[in-house]
């Protein structure tokens, strides 16, 4: 008996000092979790930033990554519906069950745009809860950082002071950046744009850009020649500034449209790691607010 108590005494400090292991779906959530959690949290990012966030491959190696996680943070709004459920199901880890208090769905904490009034699959791959790419409004980043702070405190109250301090630092820095980006984008207000998929909805919303059409005929459905020809006519009529294009789809159709209509294609990274130069959240929005010339 004594032996066991000794062993327990030895092991106890280890568990006390062990970091919280938090699995997150996308790199931007990882960046926020690192900013708030700093050295108290080990962050495991599941998806790569340069891949289509709708089509992450549910590799078995990812099951091993979430198997021992203490918590899971996801984007939500059905962005992960094509790949996260089988990982959660097969990881046999009650801590990452969607009903666990160590599971966080960020979409529940921000207001989603473009919530469809009715959904039908003949309208393409529509997200019934609204557009899930909400982190691309830099104002939402602060809300998300606050949500993650509260979440970390709720599961690791011992370090609440650390999380509060890191959050305060982050929000000071971010508020200054918000002003810079706002003034940079001031002259872009009411500018019309075309996109491949409506990824930049929240960025456009934040800075008053209007997205008039997408290269996809329907959400999630690859370009068709009929739709492309119609789009070229629309561009000639409406004269948008440019085509905002993600990093993961082929730019072939966009370049064809560009050639026929004379408007340029602008690559818009959607997450940390989407391009080699996008190393953190600040460089992501620095890039995005400079991209449209």
């Amino acid at each position: 008996m004594k032996k066991y108590i000794f062993a327990l005494l030895f092991l106890l400090p280890l568990t006390l000092f062990a970091n919280l292991s938090v699995a997150v779906t996308y790199p931007y959530i990882g960046a926020l979790t690192k900013a708030i959690g700093a050295d108290k949290v080990d962050t495991v990012v599941l998806a790569k930033g340069n891949w289509d966030p709708h089509f992450i491959v549910p590799r078995p190696s990812l099951i091993a990554k979430v198997r021992d996680a203490d918590a899971l943070i996801m984007n939500g709004g059905q962005l992960e519906i094509g790949w996260l459920p089988p990982l959660i199901e097969r990881a046999s880890n009650p801590k990452i069950a969607t009903t666990a208090k160590t599971f966080l769905d960020l979409s529940r904490h921000v207001e989603l745009l473009q919530k469809p009034t009715s959904v039908d699959r003949s309208g393409g791959d529509v997200h019934p809860e609204g557009n899930p790419h909400f982190h691309l409004d830099p104002n939402n980043i602060l809300i998300l950082a606050g949500t993650i702070k509260e979440f970390l405190i709720s599961i690791d109250s011992q370090n609440s002071a650390v999380y509060e301090k890191n959050y305060a630092q982050f929000s000071d820095m971010w508020n200054k950046k918000l002003n810079t980006w706002k003034s940079k984008m001031a002259d872009k207000n009411a500018l019309k744009v075309v996109q491949y998929h409506n990824v930049m909805a929240y960025f456009n919303h934040a800075y008053g850009l209007t997205s008039i059409a997408t290269i996809e005929p329907l959400p999630g459905i690859p370009p068709s020649s009929k739709h492309t020809m119609e789009l070229i006519e629309l561009i000639k009529k409406e004269s948008p500034c440019c085509i905002l294009h993600d990093v993961y789809h082929d730019t072939k159709t966009a370049e064809f449209i560009s050639e026929k209509s004379g408007i340029k294609v602008v690559i818009m990274p959607h997450d940390v790691g989407a391009l080699d130069t996008i190393e953190d959240l600040v460089s992501l929005f620095d890039y995005l607010t400079s991209a449209i010339k």
Binding site: P58, P60, G82, W83, L84, P86
Partner: peptide, 8 residues
């Protein structure tokens, strides 16, 4: 209907 994601 509510068709779930396929595992790897």
């Amino acid at each position: 209907g509510a068709h779930g994601a396929h595992s790897f």
